[in-house]
């Protein structure tokens, strides 16, 4: 009985190890696509939140520490999405196309969030409006990409 129980534990550990080994292996096209869509969604969340924050700040509705946290979080989210995308090579042509579409959008998003930080710090309302328009456009393009590949 005891031997049987130990054998059961051994089999369970082996299965867990096999599962982890499978998960740690190189991504196939399906997994890569899933990762890329997650990265695009994270970028979308960040740029649209930043755009809302920009408009609210221009209207004098936010306090500085809060805005600073919100912009830092957006910048961090875009950087994480870029890392997530860069962490794996695309396994085939279709996923390479996906990467080539998404990577520049995330790069633009990182730039736009940085520009929003600059414009809000300077109290430059016209600058904020311009960046918000850019962020919205990026949001639409990222949303389109998420819808196409989800």
């Amino acid at each position: 009985m005891k031997a049987g129980r130990w054998a059961g534990v051994g089999v369970a550990l082996l299965l867990i190890w096999a599962g982890l080994a499978y998960c740690a292996g190189p991504a196939d096209a399906h997994e890569y696509r899933r990762t890329a869509v997650q990265a695009a969604q994270a970028g979308l969340n960040a740029v649209r939140t930043a755009a809302l924050a920009g408009v609210s700040d221009r209207d004098g509705k936010l306090i500085d520490p809060y805005l600073s946290v919100l912009i830092d979080e957006s910048a961090g989210a875009v950087a994480s999405a870029q890392n997530q995308l860069a962490a794996q090579p695309p396994p085939d042509d279709a996923t390479r196309t996906l990467r080539d579409q998404l990577a520049p959008l995330l790069l633009d998003a990182a730039g736009a969030v940085g520009d929003l930080d600059h414009a809000t710090s300077a109290g430059d309302d016209a600058g904020i409006d311009a960046v918000v328009a850019r962020l919205r456009q990026l949001g639409d393009r990222l949303n389109d990409l998420v819808d196409r590949y989800r």
């Binding site: 969604q41 979308l44 969340n45 649209r48 939140t49 809302l52 924050a53 609210s56 809060y66 946290v69 919100l70 979080e73 989210a77 949001g139 949303n143 998420v146």
Partner: peptide, 14 residues
Amino acid sequence: LDVQLNSLAQVALP
């Protein structure tokens, strides 16, 4: 907007 939430700052923004 299809925005998913992952921070308290986002919750308070509206």
